[in-house]
Each structure stands twice: as structure tokens, then as C-alpha cells.
Computed example of a mutant assay.
Amino acid sequence: MSTSADDASPERTGYRRSAGSPRGEARRRDLLERVTDDLAANGLVDFSLRRAARAAGTTHKVLLYHFDGADDLLRQAVVRLRERRIGHVEAAVAALPDGTLAARVRAVWPVLMDAESGLRVLDQAIGLTMYDPGRYGPLGRDASQQYRPTLLALCPPDWTDERKGQVAEMILAVLRGFLVEWLTTGDTSGVDAGLVALVRALEREEAAGA
């Protein structure tokens, strides 16, 4: 990701964030959607305020009025990209006529593998978190926080909160590992086999609580 001078913080440039008026907030959301579209299509490589400004049809100075610099804009765009994916996940689950936890996870998996939903970008975001946790740590922490409520909702409603939390963490970690494996090796057969094992484990877990 670029760290050029055009990525300077508002404190250095003299610009300020939007005060949060309805009009200003609508403008900020529109800019964020456009930058998110660019991020989904082109990834994180060479991301900068100037590139984001071109994608949004504005100037980097306008972006600095609404966002606290390049890192803040990147974080918000990644969060927005995840929100879109989570919306697709929830739609896939809602389309099931009925379903066990295992069936819901099976329905979720193809959505998560959809390359057009920004999968590689989100994988790159996790990579940045590992490369420079001091600067990009929120990209990783935000991921777990965003996905956890949806995963908790997949669990049977009569389970205890503790049990839901344990299973949701397992699903999150395993599916994230599958996605990284698929992206880095292209080994679809191995990932498919792992998913079968995960579904079988979830079936046993749900049966134990019946």
C-alpha cells in the first residue's frame, strides 16, 4: 500500500473530517461506496488517497475532509466490503426453507468463496494485519467482530451463549483457514474434503445438544 505524501493525516494537511450533518454523511457514504467498489475490483496493492480519489470522482483533499487519512479510509472500505459479504451470507441462510447448523454452514461456504465479493481483498487485509499489526491491526480485529454475530445466529437458539460462542469461533477459524488454503494453493479438493469433515463435526455437535 502506498505511503506517499498524498496520504498525509488531516492534522498535517489542515483538513477536517465531516461534521456529521445529514448532507455530509450522505456524501461520505457515497464516497465510501465508490472506493469500496474500486477496492473490490483492484485490491489493496498501490492503494492511496489519490487512487481512491480517482475511483470516487473527487480529489484527495475532499477525501481528507470526510476521512482521517488513507489508513482510516482503507479500514472503512474493508469493513464495508465485509458488510456486503455478510449481507450475502445472511441472504443465503434466509433462503433455506429450514436448516440445521451444518446445512447453514454448507449454504454459507459458496458465498464466502465468491471471488467477485472481494475475497482476495479481505485476504490481503489479513496479510497486512500480520505484516504490520501496529498499523493494520484493526483490519484483523474488525473481521472477527463483524462475522461473529452472524455465526452466532447460525447456532440453534436453545444453545447457551457459551456454547454458541465456542462453536462460532470454531466455524470462523476453520472457514478462514479453508479460504486461505484455497487462495494460496488452489487446492479445491483438499478444501472440499475439509468442509465435509467440518459439516460432519457440526452434525455431531448439534446431535449432542438435541
Rank of each mutant, 00 (worst) to 15 (best):
L112S: 10
D46T: 06
G57M: 14
K61D: 09
Y15M: 06
V45S: 15
A153G: 09
V121A: 13
C155Q: 15
G99C: 01
L183H: 08
A115K: 00
A107N: 10
E116W: 00
G24E: 08
A5M: 07
I86S: 02
D123G: 11
A94W: 00
T100R: 02
G43F: 09
T188M: 05
E181Q: 11
L202N: 04
Q76F: 02
A208W: 03
R163D: 10
G118F: 07
A95D: 11
L64S: 00
L122T: 11
T13S: 15
W109D: 12
T3D: 09
R51W: 10
R120W: 08
A197N: 08
A207K: 05
L39F: 01
R176Y: 14
L122N: 14
A77H: 12
A173N: 04
A143R: 15
L122W: 10
A26M: 12
L198Q: 10
E206T: 01
R135W: 00
A94I: 00
L119C: 09
R120E: 14
E162K: 03
G190I: 06
R27V: 08
A193S: 14
Y65D: 09
R106S: 13
R148E: 15
L74H: 03
T129D: 11
A19H: 04
A103W: 01
P22A: 10
E206Y: 00
R50C: 07
P133H: 06
R163A: 08
A103N: 03
L119I: 07
T3S: 05
A52V: 04
G99H: 00
E169T: 08
R135L: 05
W182P: 03
L101K: 05
A5L: 11
P10S: 03
G186L: 08
G57H: 12
D142Q: 08
D72T: 02
M1C: 07
E90C: 02
F47Q: 07
E205R: 04
L198R: 10
T129P: 04
G209L: 14
R29P: 01
D72H: 04
T58P: 05
V105K: 12
D71E: 11
A173V: 02
G20E: 06
D7K: 00
A55V: 06
R27E: 11
R204C: 09
V108T: 13
E169N: 11
R104P: 04
G165L: 03
A5H: 08
A207P: 01
A19T: 06
N42H: 15
R12D: 15
L151N: 14
S144K: 09
T150H: 08
V111D: 15
E33P: 01
D37G: 01
A95G: 06
P10I: 02
E90P: 00
A143T: 15
V108M: 12
L101Q: 07
R23P: 02
N42Q: 13
L195T: 03
R106K: 09
L139P: 08
L172Y: 02
G186V: 09
G99T: 01
R120Q: 13
M170R: 07
Q76W: 02
S21E: 02
